[in-house]
Write a protein that binds this DNA or RNA. Structure first.
Length: 291
DNA sequence: CACTTGACCTGTCCGC
DNA sequence: TGCGGACAGGTCAAGT
């Protein structure tokens, strides 16, 4: 479930918590989560100091002073949670935290820092992964080469958006929004939310959307992603930020997980269906297929 | 060639 | 209570 806003929230959190920290130990209990050779870990991870945290699409990059980076994809249930040396349970709002003592049974990788604090990579479903590789090689990964532009990038215009969508003119708009090679970082939640906001049925073919609609979708998508970042992302089931706390965006969501409730715009009962193989939430009145 | 389905996994929820 | 099956949904590979 971590999409662009969730990964960005983790990035901002880690940026405040672990920059300048020196890694002194690493353990993992699921080799697929972190398949690097032990020798590389020993040479380029242990003893390394964290210099920067970056994000591209839904991927997190932790840069090290050894010239290597940790490339991390949280996939659906991944979490990156930092714990200081002193753990204060009961502090803050009890509902904020989804997790207790760490490591727990979902912890796949643990990084320990020189000051006694730790970073836990938890992943209930084991789809997520972490790779150690030379920083300069990251951009040449096949995944990165194929990625579309950042939707919140300063240079990303409505015209770019429209042109890229048109490459998949005959496809349904939701399937295209979820395609990371068209635009990077959009997942199921924000696809549904932005299509509702732009009053577009998710199965509408791209070629059937008037230019004005594409413009609206561009504006709404950017606005929603930005708002979601401000709200700390969406916690549907597992997602938490770098401090183990929930995001609050779903409180503001208009359709996602709101089937059976009235459409905030017209009052029609929202429905849940399946589009492009994904659970899809929409208003059957506001969002109709045009052709 | 474009799109759909299945695999990767585990936990939760629902119906019987 | 226990149990089978559907479902959650990011990405890649395989199939139609």
């Amino acid at each position: 479930m971590p999409e662009l806003p969730e990964v960005e929230t983790v990035r901002v959190g880690l940026n405040q918590l672990i920059i300048g920290k020196k890694i002194t130990a690493e353990t993992h209990d699921w080799s697929k989560s972190f398949p690097n050779a032990k020798a590389d870990v020993g040479r380029f991870l242990l003893g390394a100091t964290i210099t920067a945290i970056r994000r591209r699409a839904k991927v997190l990059l932790i840069d090290l002073d050894t010239g290597y980076s940790l490339v991390i994809h949280l996939k659906m249930t991944g979490q990156l949670v930092y714990r200081g040396k002193m753990v204060h349970f009961g502090a803050g709002h009890p509902n904020d935290s989804l997790i207790g003592e760490l490591p727990d049974r979902t912890t796949r990788v643990t990084l320990a820092f020189e000051d006694g604090s730790k970073l836990f990579f938890n992943d209930q479903r084991k789809f997520g992964w972490m790779r150690l590789m030379p920083t300069i090689e990251v951009e040449y990964l096949d995944f990165f080469q194929k990625l579309g532009p950042e939707p919140l990038g300063a240079t990303f215009t409505a015209e770019d958006f429209g042109a890229r969508l048109q490459r998949r003119a005959k496809s349904g708009i939701k399937a295209v929004l979820l395609d990371q090679t068209v635009v990077a970082g959009v997942g199921n939640i924000y696809a549904d939310e932005s299509l509702w906001a732009a009053k577009i049925h998710p199965e509408t073919k791209v070629q059937d959307l008037p230019l004005k609609k594409l413009h609206t979708l561009y504006t709404e998508l950017r606005h929603i992603l930005q708002l979601a970042i401000e709200k700390g992302g969406s916690t549907d089931r597992n997602y938490v930020n770098a401090e183990g706390k929930r995001g609050s965006y779903l409180t503001f969501a208009n359709v996602f997980r709101r089937q059976g409730q009235p459409c905030p715009r017209c009052g029609t009962t929202l429905i849940k269906t399946k589009v492009a193989g994904r659970g899809t939430h929409l208003c059957p009145n506001c969002q109709q297929v045009v052709s």
